[in-house]
Amino acid sequence: MLEIKNLQVQLEEEDKQILKGVDLSLEAGKVHAIMGPNGSGKSTLSYVLSGKGGYEVTAGSAHLEGNDILSMEPEERAAAGLFLAFQYPVEIPGVGNMTFLRTAVNSQRKLRGEPEMSAGEFLKVVRAKAKDLKIDAEMLKRPVNVGFSGGEKKRNEILQMAMLEPKMCILDETDSGLDVDAMKLVAQGVNALRDGKRTFLVITHYQRLLDHIKPDVVHIMAAGRIIKSGGPELALQVENNGYSDLLEGSA
């Protein structure tokens, strides 16, 4: 699904290398997790893949189903099936959540040359999906993320993911700022989208989230590189011993 090869990235504004050659191969239908200490480059990886400005790719490649995504605009990557659940979802006052969702769904359809979803059809679908995530009608009407609690913002990210039906979902520290109940709800939403074809890249600091979203593969990232990959047991090892053992091992 997603092939990342020797991805090297530095900041545009300063000569600072953040990713120093990342290799990742994500098969369709699998859940991969990336763990790593602060500043290891996890969030940068998610931003570079989804097309945020401010970064310069100095080497390497990233292909989604064989398409070179690094040469695409962010909206084209989204239409190609990439989705990033933000660590800090952005508030957009004055734009209704529903308007935003419908604009996003139909913009992607338009970019893919598909017919737009009618207002009636959209309403039916969004209501059903919102209900599963315990998002009420009031939250759909309110401006995008304005006045939402931390949990509501993350649930709203998952609702967008459910509506946009991406092939490749990147979750950037979706567990940050969530209490246990909110985390379970979000994890349920994510698990409901696992269909054997959709691929997930879950970025997290803690093993906690991985109790609820069971990964197939766990990668440890440090100083801009993947230093170790393994099964779910790797996450437990981090939980028990921290990152220091792994970091020493790789040095």
Binding site: S50, G51, K52, G53, E73, P74, E75, R77, A78, A79, F83, L84, F86, P89, V90, I92, P93, G94, V95, F100, T103, A104, V105, S107, Q108, L111, P143, Q160, L164
Partner: peptide
């Protein structure tokens, strides 16, 4: 905010319009 909207598949010009309304 512009990146957030674009990452959802909204083309840049349309995203600027939405932020204008906002």
């Amino acid at each position: 905010a512009l990146f957030y909207l674009r990452s959802r598949g909204i083309p840049e010009a349309k995203a600027v319009d939405l932020l204008t309304l906002s």
